[in-house]
């Protein structure tokens, strides 16, 4: 099992102006004030003038209160929500390039199957696995694949959304 982090993780969904320099503002705020970002994912929303950032950050309540207040102070931040008390979905997407000679292929296929992942590319001695899920699942899959030899790993970072009909921008 993965070791439990010392401080709780919070998943923040942040709506920001879709403008140049906004990512630098957010990243700069975290580094200037010494907050730790676990992951950060950005993409356009249903409104092209708005981007949505999902930021996973560690810290106690006081730190999180400051993180949220400081983010809200940025002129380009439109709205944010901490999902720590909200039922929500979290997804991370990983592309994993694994050593795979003929002897290992069937075992690899079984593992990929169990995790409901996909094989999206194959070569003579490797294959690429695409997996989607929450962080625990991705970590577990990586754990299972690493004995075969992971050549390359690329992850999106967590994206999140609250369950139910309500949306962040209303």
């Amino acid at each position: 099992m993965k070791q439990r982090p010392a401080e709780p993780k919070h998943t923040l969904s942040v709506l920001v102006e879709n403008k140049a320099g906004v990512l630098a503002r957010i990243a700069g705020l975290f580094s200037a004030r010494g907050y730790n970002i676990d992951s950060l994912a950005v993409g356009e929303t249903e409104d092209p003038s708005v981007s949505r950032m999902t930021i996973v950050v560690q810290g106690d309540e006081r730190v999180l209160e400051q993180v949220e207040k400081q983010l809200n102070k940025l002129i380009d931040v439109i709205k944010l929500s901490d999902y720590v008390q909200t039922p929500h979905l979290e997804r991370d997407l990983a592309l994993i390039k694994v050593d795979a000679d003929k002897a290992d292929r069937s075992e690899l296929l079984q593992i990929v199957d169990i995790f409901r992942a996909k094989i999206v590319d194959v070569s003579a001695d490797s294959l690429i696995v695409e997996a989607t899920g929450d962080e625990d699942k991705i970590e577990a899959l990586i754990g299972m694949l690493s004995p075969f030899g992971i050549r390359e790993l690329s992850r999106t970072g967590i994206v999140a959304m609250a369950r139910g009909g309500k949306s962040l921008n209303t």
């Binding site: 140049a20 320099g21 630098a24 503002r25 700069g28 200037a32 002129i75």
Partner: peptide, 16 residues
């Protein structure tokens, strides 16, 4: 310039 002033201003703009 906007990269330099970002952490020491309330806000900044590069006019494009």
């Amino acid at each position: 310039a906007t990269g330099c002033t970002r952490p020491v201003t309330k806000h900044n703009y590069l006019v494009k």
